[in-house]
Amino acid sequence: MELYMQKNKQNNIFDDINIILDSTIEGIIIIEKGFIVNVNDSLIQILEYKTKDELIGNLATGVLIPSTTEKFIEYNRHIFQEVTLVSNNGDLIPAIIKIKDIKLKNNNYKVVSILDLREFKQKEMLLFKQSRLAAMGEMISMIAHQWRQPLSAIGSVVSRLKFKLATNKIDKEDLNEKLNEVNNYLQYMSKTIDDFRNFFKDDKQKEFLDLNETINNAISMLKPTLESHNIILDKQNIALSKILAYKNEVIQVILNVLNNAIDAIIENEIKEGKITITLEEKNNYQRVYIKDNAGGVPKEIINRIFEPYFSTKINKNGTGLGLHMCKIILEKHLNGTIDVKNEKNAACFIIEFKI
């Protein structure tokens, strides 16, 4: 009898607020002592149930799966906890939640506000794919730079051989030397293709990386671009612990930041362009500082350069995805961060990895 009266009392309380709860776009669960005592219509739709009665009285952990490590996400400049929901069909649904303790009629409850992240995650994946396509376009340009000199050299060798053949002034030793020279150029071009092809492979698992070597891999892809624009790149080499990370994603981050620095130097017509890379290991973190001498980031946009589709490269058809994807890759996949600041007429990007 007492249990019936207590349940009836709860129903009266929630009858008064159901209209408010059902007017919200986010799902809401009200929990008492670990059990669900009320939900709103939005949550029923998210979890694909037919009625509230299918959820009320069940343990909240049957719907909300707590992660082994706490995850948080920034959404509209607010921080929320990221969790997984279990739908009526057993599907896993990514979501963010916010928990608030309330007291009604001397009873303590927890109100859990839930936002379905499926659409958000789909858009994030689309951004990632668009970023990869933009990176592919840049890679094709880099390959063109890498191949221009050896192709020119091969053309020159072939022209000289044709001339000597036409004048009967070629011997076996000279021919063999020229063929070896052509073969060396072809081997270099083949290695270039392998380097870029490996970059576009999806990393299946993390591996232990030496950040020095990984950064050097990125620099080697940009070497012809740097040389063609007379940009000096000065990199510090220090002993570092190995970090567990996806190699290609680290390279993508470094390439994006370096390309951004190169573009800034070119667009600002810096005659003696210079990029410096310094490394630091401290307090279980490794930091990469990439600084250019292009004049720094304008104050009015420095807080926006990591936003999606924000680009200053109007004349270069910039997608505005490069730096944004650096932020996404670091925060979501590499347990890292990226920031930027101006230092004495220079922009300095700070990339941080947790060891």
Rank of each mutant, 00 (worst) to 15 (best):
K274R: 09
G27K: 01
I96Q: 09
L127Q: 07
N217K: 07
N317M: 13
I114S: 06
E352W: 07
E281I: 06
M1L: 13
K206W: 07
M1Y: 15
A347M: 10
D171I: 01
V257W: 04
A95T: 13
K110M: 14
T319R: 14
G295K: 09
I254A: 03
L209E: 10
W147N: 03
I20W: 05
Y75R: 11
G137I: 14
L209V: 11
L165D: 01
V39E: 04
K299R: 07
K164Q: 05
P94L: 09
S42P: 05
G62K: 09
K164Y: 02
L279T: 08
A347R: 14
N89G: 09
I302R: 02
K344F: 06
F310N: 08
G320I: 10
K271R: 12
A294M: 08
K223M: 02
K164I: 00
T61E: 11
H145N: 15
N184I: 00
S159P: 02
C348S: 07
L279K: 15
L92C: 07
V297D: 06
I193R: 00
K274E: 05
L104E: 02
T278G: 12
V157E: 00
I140V: 13
T167A: 05
V157T: 01
R148I: 03
F306H: 04
L258D: 04
I99N: 15
F306I: 04
L244H: 13
N303H: 05
K110L: 15
I351N: 11
L222E: 03
Y75M: 09
I140T: 11
I30L: 09
K123M: 08
V112L: 10
K242M: 09
D116K: 02
I114L: 06
I65H: 14
N183S: 02
N76Q: 10
E54F: 07
N38R: 07
V297E: 08
L209G: 06
F35P: 00
S141I: 12
T69Y: 11
I290V: 10
N18E: 02
Y188R: 00
D263Q: 13
L279S: 09
D234E: 13
K282I: 05
R197M: 08
P308M: 07
L244S: 14
K121L: 07
I29V: 11
K327S: 13
I65N: 14
Q45R: 06
N256I: 14
A245H: 13
E307I: 00
L59A: 13
L85Q: 04
L209D: 08
N315H: 15
I140S: 06
K282Y: 15
A239S: 14
D234R: 09
V257H: 05
I73W: 02
D53L: 08
H78G: 05
K110Y: 14
F349S: 04
L175H: 04
E74I: 08
I305A: 01
I305R: 00
N317I: 05
I193D: 01
N76E: 10
